[in-house]
């Protein structure tokens, strides 16, 4: 195969990887602060995608505009989930938290199945068949827009955590739970905000992914796994790590699909994950656990 094919596939993998990265960023933010692994992450992703679909069919707006209301709705969902269910579990053992979120995932995926049915559904935008050409490189316009939006949202998130008082307060909770309480922060509310923010990331990523991909309720667990793989590769709790992990996994899967068979592509992502776990368990950009 000519080299251009690989370049095209790699470019497309990297662009999709950015959207995956944003989804994983949500997981990473939640784990980094609340210290709970969100096993319902992929199910929340499909929920966001279905929300986008419904709004698109009702309003006919561009998914990248719908990103805002979807992210807002997912923020509310995450906030309430943390307040109602997860906060009482903060000091419970890991397997207990895991069970809670597995139960949430089970409910979510099946409610979606009841409401939206089992079939794959997608949307078509004005630019669905457009593409950009850069020399020999041809990339889908929709992927470029989605990846661009992912970068914007991720950038906004970085700025929020670095420059705003609220962002700093949340980082304080992540760094030192007791210390944050001593200085008078309302940790439970900040946890809820964090879970909301993580969910909003998923909401935004879901709206973007809707531009380039179809959705079924059954795909949820696969997205959960994908988010795990990305976040652990990049470094659980590290925000740039999640984006980097997304890029790497997007690239690995795309190239694995061309070099071998497309159905085996996730195997390469898992192989990468195993390598990272063995040689750098904290992830490429992660900090060593204390």
């Amino acid at each position: 195969m000519p080299i251009e094919v690989y370049l095209n596939v790699a470019a497309s993998g990297l662009l999709t990887g950015l959207v995956y990265g944003l989804m994983a960023l949500g997981l990473s933010v939640i784990f980094g602060v609340v210290r709970v692994v969100n096993f319902a992450h992929g199910e929340m992703m499909t929920l966001a995608m279905f929300l986008t679909l419904v709004l698109f069919n009702a309003l006919g707006l561009d998914p990248l505009v719908l990103l805002v209301p979807v992210a807002a709705a997912m923020f509310a969902f995450g906030y309430l989930l943390q307040i109602g269910l997860i906060n009482p579990f903060i000091n419970r053992p890991e397997h207990s938290q895991f069970m809670l979120l597995v139960a949430v995932a089970l409910v979510l995926v099946n409610v979606q199945l009841i409401v939206f049915g089992p079939d794959a559904q997608g949307i078509r935008t004005r630019y669905s068949f457009d593409s950009f050409q850069l020399g020999t490189l041809i990339v889908d316009a929709s992927k470029v827009y989605a990846a661009g939006a992912a970068l914007v949202v991720a950038g906004a998130l970085f700025a929020f955590f670095r420059f705003t008082l609220l962002g700093k307060a949340i980082r304080a909770c992540a760094d030192n739970y007791d210390g944050a309480r001593v200085v008078g922060l309302n940790v439970k509310r900040l946890y809820a905000l964090t879970f909301g923010i993580g969910s909003a990331c998923v909401g935004a990523a879901g709206a973007m992914l809707m531009v380039v991909s179809d959705v079924t309720p059954a795909i949820g667990p696969a997205y959960t796994l994908l988010a795990f793989v990305i976040v652990i590769t990049g470094g659980l709790g590290s925000m740039p790590g999640a984006l980097l992990g997304g890029l790497l996994i997007g690239l690995t899967e795309a190239l694995g699909g061309v070099l071998f068979t497309p159905s085996a592509k996730s195997m390469f992502a898992f192989a990468l994950l195993v390598l990272v776990l063995l040689f750098r368990p904290q992830g490429i950009l992660g900090r060593k656990a204390a």
């Binding site: 795990f228 793989v229 659980l236 085996a264 996730s266 898992f270 776990l277 063995l278 368990p281």
Partner: peptide, 30 residues
């Protein structure tokens, strides 16, 4: 061996076990 030698524990260990079973799933597909 891989997990305990390299200090992979807790959540990381759990996800390592998922990774291996997923790896096997796709491997057996082929």
């Amino acid at each position: 061996f891989l997990a305990f030698r390299f200090g992979v524990a807790g959540v990381y260990f759990a996800i390592l076990t998922i990774a291996f079973s997923e790896f096997a799933r796709i491997g057996f597909d082929h």
